[in-house]
Simulated assay, not measured.
Amino acid sequence: MEQAVSAADANRKFSTILRGVREGNSYVVTSHGRPVARIIPAYREDETASGARAALLARLERQDIVQAGRWTRDELYDGR
């Protein structure tokens, strides 16, 4: 389970947070109540990335193929 911690508290209590991470805890750092970062044990990073990749690939497999046609370079980089 992740614990929420404000950016100010994370700054003040960084060594305590690192100790918690070594014990397997995870933290979500918030700024003005909005999540901005996640502090997780290093060994979980690969698990998180591979899980996100698997979820994305599964979602793409379920979606219908859309024929979008060909785009010109100007259309791709129009900025709209």
Rank of each mutant, 00 (worst) to 15 (best):
D46P: 00
Y77T: 07
D64W: 05
T48K: 11
A49D: 14
R53S: 14
E45C: 12
R70H: 07
I65W: 02
E61K: 00
R53M: 14
L76H: 04
A68L: 03
Q67Y: 05
L76V: 08
E75N: 05
A49T: 15
L56R: 00
Q63R: 01
L60C: 00
R59N: 10
A49P: 00
L57H: 09
R59E: 11
D74V: 07
R44K: 15
Q67K: 07
E45P: 04
L56S: 07
D74Q: 04
Y43N: 14
A55F: 13
R73E: 01
A52V: 10
R53T: 14
Y43H: 14
T48D: 13
Q67E: 06
E75G: 05
L56C: 01
R44M: 14
A58D: 11
A54K: 13
L57M: 12
T72I: 01
I39E: 10
R73T: 04
G69S: 07
A68D: 04
Y77F: 09
P41E: 12
Q67P: 02
T72S: 01
I65H: 07
S50L: 07
D74E: 07
E47P: 00
Y77N: 08
E47K: 10
T72F: 05
R53Y: 11
T48S: 10
V66D: 02
E75Y: 01
V66F: 05
W71H: 06
R44V: 10
R59L: 13
W71L: 08
I65C: 03
G51R: 10
T72D: 06
P41Y: 11
R73F: 02
L76D: 02
E47A: 11
T72G: 03
A68R: 01
A58L: 08
E75S: 08
A54P: 03
W71G: 02
Q63M: 09
A49V: 15
A68M: 03
E61F: 00
L60S: 05
L60W: 06
G51Y: 07
R62L: 12
A49H: 13
I39Q: 09
E61Q: 08
I40V: 15
L56Y: 06
E75Q: 15
A68Y: 07
L76Q: 05
G69V: 01
R73W: 03
T48V: 15
T72L: 03
E45M: 15
Y77I: 08
Q63K: 01
W71A: 05
R70N: 09
L57W: 08
D74F: 05
A58N: 10
L56W: 04
S50R: 12
T48M: 14
P41T: 14
I65T: 09
R44I: 09
D64G: 00
A42E: 15
T48C: 02
V66A: 01
D64N: 03
A58R: 12
A58H: 04
G51P: 05
